[in-house]
Design a protein around this nucleic acid. Structure first.
Lengths: 180, 180
DNA sequence: GTGAAACGGTACCGATCGGTTCCGTTCTGA
DNA sequence: TCAGAACGGAACCGATCGGTACCGTTTCAC
């Protein structure tokens, strides 16, 4: 039980932050649920804010890897990002996108957490843009930003409706966009 | 200074919640900035949660009145919802949609605040659907839900980018949707 | 003019916030 | 094997959380 304290902190914090929000989860709870001692926490992280940004960083990495893998599994076309999203939306404990939630919960745009969230979204747009290029779609940069807007709209809508419908709605809109 | 305590509480709380989020604003701060005594607050509201839902209720009412007015001023076509949004996005202290922020910040979907936020979105969809009917657009219910997804996407994107660009991007997508 | 309602201010409650410090144990690499 | 790093647990810090109770003052309708 005395190893991997940092990894356990990151895993526990990610689950709790995702399920409850950042402000709603205290350091106390992260410590008790991870089984990590208070001192060990402050040995690994400068404070709660550093933990938050580290969680966001890991989340960014794994989400993009997951998205790329699922899109490829569906065929690799940009439209398949919505098929990937639909898989996520189906989860009954779906709580939206961590980056979006961070941007709405944390007011200061200059805070490290907000910067990480913004960086994540920029990287997702880059990923979608590359999918556009691979599919030989004209004006890939503009299309990617439009797809990103549709993805964010679908995520927020899915959080509200609790069903994968928003993914199909967004996919339909995206199809009419590519057909234009 | 001894009148309108309830109205002052609502106004102050709305500003603080919008600028900083719900969890980040304590009752203490609402009292000091509104100049209302602690006891008076609990005479008007059962607690902080009741204040939150009251704020959301007022916000819902005024936002929809504002949206209807601005859309009418732009010509009354459903596409003009994005012209209306663009006006909001231009504000340098723009902090997104209160209903979206509430849904991302408050985890429990059954909480009164979340219910109010969901009700708000449903009412906005109804408003957009009526605009569709007025413009004789086919399948107004589906189109309204698609427009709502685009509006939410634009709001989140505008919060991230800090510019009105997302409104024009969403409008362009909406145009290709109506043309299909 | 008078009584009741509404009000602002303050002291207080237990609980929790993020963070620091110290101690004794457990793990691990040379 | 043994030193030193990494660790878990707990006591403690000032600050703030949401909420209650009591006080003296101001407002307002009759």
């Amino acid at each position: 039980m005395a190893v991997n304290a940092r990894a356990r902190l990151l895993n526990t914090a990610e689950s709790l932050f995702y399920a409850n929000g950042i402000h709603a989860v205290g350091v106390e709870r992260i410590l008790s649920e991870s089984g990590v001692g208070r001192a060990s926490f402050y040995r690994h992280f400068a404070g709660k804010e550093a933990l938050v940004t580290a969680v966001l960083e890991g989340r960014d990495e794994r989400f993009r890897a997951w998205l790329a893998e699922r899109v490829a599994a569906h065929g690799g076309h940009p439209l398949h990002v919505f098929d990937a999203l639909a898989e996520r939306f189906a989860a009954q404990d779906y709580r939206g996108c961590v980056a979006i939630n961070t941007m709405t919960e944390i007011a200061d745009p200059a805070s490290p957490a907000r910067e990480m969230a913004a960086l994540h979204k920029r990287r997702v747009v880059e990923l979608v843009e590359q999918l556009m290029r691979n599919a030989d779609i004209p004006e890939p940069a503009s299309r990617a930003r439009e797809f990103a807007l549709l993805m964010d709209g679908a995520i927020v809508t899915a959080l509200r409706e609790g069903t994968p419908d928003a993914a199909w709605r967004a996919r339909g809109i995206a199809e009419s966009l590519l057909a234009a």
